[in-house]
């Protein structure tokens, strides 16, 4: 898991971007820029909340982060800051600011895959060419995923059927995300920041269910019975 100062999470209300308060703002802003370009398509149209934690923020600090986000065409829904002065500065910068939710914030679970994604959706039909599904958590398709269709998920993707289209799992950078299918023959497969395609020639037909995941910095596909979790 890369050491990261930016944690992007899916919540039931949309996307939350949390900045590590221990990292200088400039570094955090740079990393944010990088992460946004990785998963640009994912953020489009999403409701995004920025959480700075206890960090003290001035009006110009807020404007700087707004600049980073607006270059990726992201409009902030609201911001969360523990510090009242930071919230006031945010309001001065034209943002909707709120204190952290009353219930205890969960520990920043970096890389703890199961904790980052707590939600999933079930799509109970075949996704045909032209269909696109985006979700911040896990996605299960009960049907086929045909060529020309795509699923982009923050967590894992499971296809209970034939996967012939394009899938991006862990689109917000989760290196532990996996893709499983009864018949795994994707046009293209993306896991976190990696892109893979099946070999052009001599591809064997999948003989059974398979799972794709990242191992030693590369995407590998294994038969389900050999993929020890």
């Amino acid at each position: 898991m890369p050491n990261t100062s930016v944690v992007i999470k899916g919540t039931k209300d949309g996307l939350s971007i949390a900045l590590d308060p221990a990292v200088p703002l400039g570094d955090a802003a740079n990393e944010l820029t990088g992460r946004l370009t990785e998963a640009l398509s994912f953020f489009q149209g999403a409701r995004v909340v920025l959480d700075v934690g206890p960090r003290a923020m001035s009006e110009s600090d807020w404007q700087r982060l707004q600049g980073v986000l607006s270059r990726s065409q992201i409009v902030l829904h609201s911001v969360v800051a523990e510090d009242e002065a930071s919230r006031q500065a945010a309001r001065a910068a034209g943002l909707h600011a709120a204190p952290p939710p009353a219930r205890a914030r969960p520990a920043q679970s970096r890389g703890a895959h199961a904790e980052v994604h707590t939600e999933g959706i079930l799509i109970r039909r075949t996704l045909r060419s032209g269909a696109a599904e985006r979700h911040t958590g896990h996605v299960v398709v009960l049907g086929d995923l045909n060529p020309g269709a795509e699923v982009v998920a923050g967590g894992d993707v499971v296809v209970w059927g034939s996967l012939r289209g394009v899938v991006h799992a862990g689109c917000m950078g989760d290196q532990e995300a996996v893709v499983c299918a009864l018949y795994l023959a994707p046009t293209q497969l993306r896991l976190a920041g990696l892109v893979a395609r099946p070999p052009d020639r001599g591809e064997g037909r999948p003989l059974g269910p398979e799972m794709a995941r990242i191992r030693d910095g590369a995407i590998v596909v294994e038969a389900w019975d050999r993929a020890k979790r």
Binding site: L189, G193, L194, V195, A196, R197, P198, P199, G202, E203, G204, R205, P206, L207, A212, G217, A218, I219, V220, V221, E222
Partner: peptide
């Protein structure tokens, strides 16, 4: 085409 190849290569060509 598939019939000719019995075993399926495990590694996808990955590029970053």
């Amino acid at each position: 085409l598939w019939g000719f190849v019995r075993s399926r290569p495990i590694d996808f060509k990955a590029r970053n």
